[in-house]
Design a protein around this nucleic acid. Structure first.
Lengths: 259, 259
DNA sequence: GTGGTAAATTGGTCAAACCAATATTTCTCA
DNA sequence: TGAGAAATATTGGTTTGACCAATTTACCAC
C-alpha cells in the first residue's frame, strides 16, 4: 500500500518548472526556438534524458512542440494551455459536445445576467465594440474571423460579469467548441439562414445587458445557446449520412528493434 | 521558420496513448500500481527511457503518480488534473476566492438540480455511501479525512447530474478551494458549531435529490454555499490580523554534477 | 540564379550501468 | 512467541554514450 510521504523533488520537475518560468516570464517568447537539447542539458547541468522528460511534460501541457531534426518551439497561443485536457477528451468522446452545450447554457445565461447587473461604463463600451466587430464579421466569409469575433463578444460579456472564473471559463469553452466544430464538422456551411438569426440573438443579448435587464439578458443568452444546440444537432444528423468511419486511433506502435 | 508538416509519430506518444487507453477503459483502475518500468518497457517493446517519457506525459496530466522505490500508481480521482493553472492564479490573487464561491454557488445549485432530475439508482446508492462517509468523517478530527469526504460527496452529486463537465468542474473547484483554505488559513478551527450546521445542510441536499425535488435540491445547495461563504468571510476577517507573508516558491535546482 | 546533393544540425531511441528511496524478508533478542 | 532491527530485494531516478532519422544548411554543378 502506498504511503503518503512527501515526494522527493524530481529533477525533471525542476527543469520543467525552470523552463516554464522562462516562458511565462517572457525570456522565451511564443514562437521562439529552444536551444538544442544537447546545449540546453549542459547549460542546465542535467543529462539529456532528464531534460527530455521535462520537455515531454511541457509538451503534454501544450507549451512547447518538437519536430525531429527541426527543433523545439514555444507554442504560439498559450492561452489555450488551460484546456488541452478537455480538447483531447472532446476529440475522443464526441458525445461530450452535448454536455458542453448544456453546460454553456448555464454559463452564458449566468454571465449575461450578471453582466446586466454589474457592467461598468467601460465594460459597456468594450461590449459595444465587440458587438459591432461581430456584426461586421458576419458579412464576411472568413470563418476564422467570425470565430474570433464571436469569442471576443462572449468574452466581453464574461468579463462584464465581473467574475474571473466565469469570464475565463466562458471564453475557454467557447474557444474549445469552435475548435471542435471546425475539427469535426469541417466548414459547417450547411446552415442556410442562420446568420441573420444569430445576429438578432446577439443583438438581443447586447440590448438586454445595455438596458440592464438581467432576466432578459439571461433568457436571450439561453435562447442563443438553444439555437446553436439545435442547429448543431441538425448539422450532425445531416453529416451522419456521410460515412462515420470510426477513426479508431491506431495506438499500437511498432518499435524499430527489440531486445 | 518552422514548417507545418505532419508530425512523425513519436513512440513515447504512442506508449502514453496506450497506457491512457488502458486507464480510461478500466483495465488499469484508479489506485492500481503499474508494472515496474523494466517489465513494462519489455512488454511494450520499447526502451525504458521512452517508457519514462510517456509516463512523464501522463504524470503531467495528473493521471499517474510515481514514488521512487515505491512504484507508479494510477491517480485515484482524475479530476484534479484540470485545474493546475487556476491553483497558481488563486495563490497569486486571494481575492479570487469570492469569485470562486460565487461561481460554485451556480455550479453546485445546477448540479443538485440536475442530480435530482437524472440520478439513476446506482447514482443514489453511491450518493448514499458518500453521505454516510461524510457524516462519519465529521465526528472525526482528521481534517484531511473531512476534506476527502466532502469532495467525494459533492463529486457524487456532480456525477449524478450526468454532465461530464459539471461533474469534473465541481469536484475540481471544490478541491481547489480546500487546498486553498488549508494553504492560506491553516487549520480554520475557528468555526465553533459549524459542524452540525454543515451536516444538516448536507442532509437537506441529499434528501432533496433522493426525493427527486430539483428546485429544493438547488435551493439547499445554494444555501449551503451561502453558509460556507459567510463562514469563510468571518474567518478571513479574524485571520486578517495575522501577518500575510508572501511565500514565493523557489523553483531553482542544484544539479548533482556538471561537466 | 536554380536545382539538387552532401554535410551538419537536431530531435528520437536505445543500451547498460549505477544511485536512492522504498518494500520485503530475515534475523535477533527480549 | 512476538516485536523491532538489520539485511536484502525491488523499483523509480539519473547518467553516459552511442546510433538513427528528419530537417536544415551549405555547397557545387549547371
Amino acid at each position: 500500500m502506498p504511503s503518503n510521504k512527501l515526494q522527493v523533488p524530481r529533477i525533471s520537475d525542476a527543469v520543467a518548472a525552470s523552463l516554464e518560468r522562462r516562458i511565462l516570464e517572457g525570456s522565451l517568447k511564443p514562437g521562439d526556438r529552444l536551444p538544442p537539447e544537447r546545449e540546453l542539458s549542459i547549460e542546465l547541468g542535467v543529462s539529456r534524458p532528464s531534460l527530455r522528460e521535462a520537455i515531454q511534460k511541457l509538451a503534454s501541457k501544450g507549451m512547447v512542440q518538437s519536430r525531429q531534426g527541426g527543433g523545439t518551439y514555444v507554442t504560439d497561443r498559450l492561452e489555450s494551455t488551460f484546456f488541452d485536457p478537455w480538447q483531447d477528451m472532446m476529440g475522443a468522446h464526441p458525445n461530450l459536445r452535448e454536455d458542453l452545450l448544456e453546460f454553456r447554457r448555464m454559463l452564458e445565461g449566468q454571465a449575461a445576467e450578471w453582466a446586466a447587473e454589474r457592467a461598468t461604463a467601460a465594460d459597456l463600451t468594450r461590449l459595444e465594440q465587440t458587438f459591432v466587430a461581430l456584426a461586421n464579421a458576419f458579412v464576411s466569409d472568413d470563418l476564422d474571423l467570425r470565430s474570433k469575433a464571436d469569442i471576443a463578444f462572449h468574452q466581453a460579456i464574461g468579463e462584464a460579469s465581473h467574475n474571473v472564473l466565469l469570464g475565463h471559463l466562458s471564453a475557454a469553452l467557447l474557444r474549445l467548441m469552435h475548435d471542435n466544430i471546425r475539427l469535426n464538422l469541417g466548414e459547417l456551411k450547411s446552415i442556410p439562414a442562420a446568420g441573420t438569426l444569430l445576429k438578432s440573438q446577439h443583438t438581443a443579448i447586447h440590448d438586454a445587458i445595455r438596458e440592464r435587464k438581467p432576466q432578459a439578458a439571461r433568457a436571450a443568452a439561453e435562447t442563443h445557446i438553444d439555437f446553436v444546440r439545435e442547429t448543431l444537432a441538425q448539422s450532425l444528423r445531416s453529416a451522419a449520412r456521410r460515412e462515420t468511419a470510426e477513426r479508431r486511433l491506431n495506438t499500437d506502435f511498432s518499435p524499430s528493434n527489440n531486445s
